[in-house]
Design a protein around this nucleic acid. Structure first.
Length: 296
DNA sequence: CATACGTGGTA
DNA sequence: TTACCAAGTAT
């Protein structure tokens, strides 16, 4: 089964995108930062923010001494700002538990805030060259199409997915880590969800899905992902106001972002519950924002 | 196991 | 223009 890995790795050797977190001298912390940012956010939007973060906070300890509100502000418009909070909490945990280093053990990685099955293995593979099944949406799609012939993977990552991908990896650590990057790249660049470029694929002669006609799914393969009118949108609007404010913000400045007061209050309450926003008397701010005598 | 959680580009 | 989709995690 290593045929798929060797073909994909050979393709990767000549076609990989030149992404900065893949440079050989990049440490485990910048790799970890990239993985947090890449959770559900496209590469092109991550690039500028990642550069800013690793220049500003080159080690976990540099971020850990900041207020979490600084992380939220620097997160910009990457989306899912809870990731910024978790990355800040992760930096703190790295300082407290691991001397400011990124650990090399899977169980220690999985115990970190915001680090799940994918991120833990991705960092160990890409930063430390370890052999782990690195299973993201790209890899699951590539495996589903080539191996099982399905047009897409199931809704969630299963232990069977991990086992299947693990069985595809070369035995040696470094080769396995490179194959993991190669499978992801293949899914991101060629074996895409909507417009696969099978003509250019190094696996075209081995792909069960292509052999059966490579038919794309009829309707939506996943549940519809609404945004307009949801609490998520309202949270985003509220947080955008606070990100751009120099200090605590009074109610009227928040009220203007959404007409429905019930939904607005619910969104603000959830931001407070998440710790993304903290009260300053009658006003609100990102965590760690100094109180100002000049109401905004 | 399903659901909540941002944002913007592309077809 | 609507709708899909993008290197997931926590609950």
């Amino acid at each position: 089964m290593s045929e798929l890995a060797s073909l994909t790795t050979a393709w990767y050797d000549t076609h990989a995108r030149d992404l900065p977190w893949r440079a050989p001298d990049v440490g485990a912390w910048p790799v970890l930062v990239s993985e947090f940012m890449l959770q559900q956010t496209p590469v092109v939007r991550v690039l500028p923010v990642w550069r800013e973060w690793v220049a500003r906070w080159p080690a976990p300890a540099d971020l850990a001494v900041e207020e979490s509100g600084e992380a939220i502000r620097a997160w910009g418009r990457l989306g899912y700002p809870r990731r910024a909070m978790r990355l800040h909490a992760c930096a703190t945990a790295l300082v407290e538990r691991h001397g400011g280093e990124v650990p090399r053990r899977l169980d220690q990685m999985l115990a970190l805030p915001g680090v799940g099955d994918y991120t833990a293995r991705a960092v160990l593979a890409f930063a430390y060259g370890q052999r782990h099944p690195v299973v993201d949406t790209n890899v699951r799609r590539v495996a589903a199409r080539t191996v099982t012939g399905a047009p897409d993977a199931g809704a969630a990552t299963t232990p069977a997915d991990l086992a299947l991908v693990e069985s595809l990896l070369p035995a040696a650590d470094a080769a396995a880590a490179r194959a993991s990057a190669a499978f992801m790249e293949l899914g991101a660049v060629l074996c895409t969800a909507r417009t696969p470029r099978c003509e250019s694929c190094p696996l075209r002669a081995h792909c069960k899905w292509r052999a059966s006609g490579a038919a794309l799914p009829e309707g939506p393969s996943r549940k519809p992902q609404r945004y307009a009118g949801t609490d998520r949108q309202v949270r985003g609007l509220l947080l955008a106001v606070l990100r751009h404010a120099p200090g605590p913000v009074a109610r009227p400045a928040l009220d203007v972002v959404w007409a429905d007061a019930v939904q607005r209050e619910r969104a603000l309450a959830s931001l407070l519950a998440d710790g993304l926003v903290v009260p300053h008397g009658e006003r609100y701010a990102l965590p760690g924002t100094p109180s100002s005598s000049q109401p905004v």
